[in-house]
Computed example of a mutant assay.
Amino acid sequence: MRDQTGRKGDAFQDQVVWITGASSGIGAALVHEFIDQGARVVLSARRESELNNVSRECVEGGCDAARLLVLPLDVTHYDAMPAAVQQVLDTFGGIDLLINNAGLSQRSLCLDTDMDVYRQLLEVDVLGQIALTKSVLPHMVTRGSGHLAVTASVAGKVGAPLRTGYCAAKHAVMGFFDALRTEVAHQNIRVTTIIPGFIRTDIARNALTGTGAPAGMADGDIDGGMDVQACARMIVDGFVAGQEEIDVGVGPEMDLLKLKRDNPTAAFRLMEAMAADALTSRAAE
């Protein structure tokens, strides 16, 4: 990240930042931002080829390859996590910040959604985040410092149509990490929840339908959302400022957070109207 003079920042100079879901979208954008901040970055996701592409972009931009570790990881493979943590420690000597960013979305009505789809959403978006956090946490406790973060969503605060499983998962991670914050604060370990709104990524195209197949469709709200690199800059700025909950977005969806707090009944009626519109649009397809 550069300041107003165009110079790179150094807020995370030589810190080790581990980012899951780093092969695309917000995760890939965060890799670039932390490299600009002087961090050493661990890139994890299932798709090794895409991780290598992100790493190569960083090197072509002037990053020393020794500051990057491509570490393929499926967050649903819990047994692989201890070895992955050890590889990071062997390579960089520590873990300063873990950003749990892996995730799947959903686009289907509850009545049309197989239980296996709900199970997959919870495995990836909730249990995978918890499992990796639990694997990293003992290291942070032993060293007496650390920072844990998770990418949640506005859907972790507000129920939205066609996203019953996604909302359940994002509400769950918000609850888990808020509770975890209370347990580890006295051990000098910070916890941050990230709440993006509509960000221009492929999340809608990769979202699961009721059968588990990718939706493969554009989403006007997502495509008209915040630039992903601007989103990453806002997240890093929030870390630097010490924010414990970072709202990220520029559209009307961000107003839902305040509406849900101040007038939940109005928020419920608004989302019901949105659901009616969505059902009408689907019936017309």
Rank of each mutant, 00 (worst) to 15 (best):
F34N: 00
L121T: 03
A22M: 02
E33G: 02
V117F: 01
R47Q: 08
C110G: 10
G38C: 02
P82G: 00
A83P: 03
D79W: 01
H77D: 15
D64L: 07
C110Q: 11
D114K: 14
I35K: 02
A39G: 01
R56Y: 06
A28P: 01
R40A: 03
Y118P: 05
D116E: 14
G61T: 14
A65P: 14
N52G: 07
L69A: 08
L122E: 12
V16G: 09
Q13I: 13
D125V: 01
V124H: 05
N53L: 07
V17Q: 11
V85H: 12
R67N: 11
A29W: 03
V88L: 08
E50M: 14
G62L: 13
D112V: 01
A80S: 11
V117E: 06
V59G: 07
V124C: 04
L122V: 13
N52K: 13
S44L: 05
G25K: 07
L109Y: 00
Q86S: 15
N100W: 00
D112S: 14
G25A: 12
S23A: 10
S108L: 05
V42S: 04
D79S: 12
Q37H: 13
V41F: 04
S49A: 15
H77R: 12
S105N: 06
F92A: 10
R56Q: 14
L109H: 02
D74A: 12
G21V: 04
G61C: 15
G38H: 05
Y78F: 04
L73K: 12
G25R: 10
L73C: 12
F34Y: 06
R107G: 02
D116H: 09
V75P: 14
V31M: 11
L43Y: 07
S24T: 08
I19R: 12
R46C: 04
S49V: 08
A84K: 08
L71K: 13
D96M: 10
V16I: 15
R40P: 02
Q13E: 15
V41Y: 03
A83S: 15
T113K: 10
D90V: 03
Q13Y: 14
P72G: 14
V75S: 09
D112K: 07
M81A: 05
T20Q: 15
L51H: 08
R40K: 09
L97Q: 05
R40E: 03
S55L: 09
A28F: 02
M81S: 06
V16W: 04
I19H: 10
Q106T: 07
I95P: 10
E50K: 15
L104E: 12
V59H: 06
D116M: 08
C58M: 11
A45L: 15
V42K: 04
Y78P: 00
R119N: 02
F92T: 09
L71M: 13
A28G: 03
V70Q: 12
L51Y: 11
S55K: 15
V17M: 05
S105V: 01
L121F: 03
L122N: 11
A80Q: 11
L111M: 08
R119D: 11
A102I: 02
F34H: 06
L43I: 13
Q87M: 12
R47G: 07
R119V: 00
N53R: 13
A102W: 04
A39F: 06
N101L: 02
Y118Q: 05
L122G: 03
R119Y: 00
S55D: 06
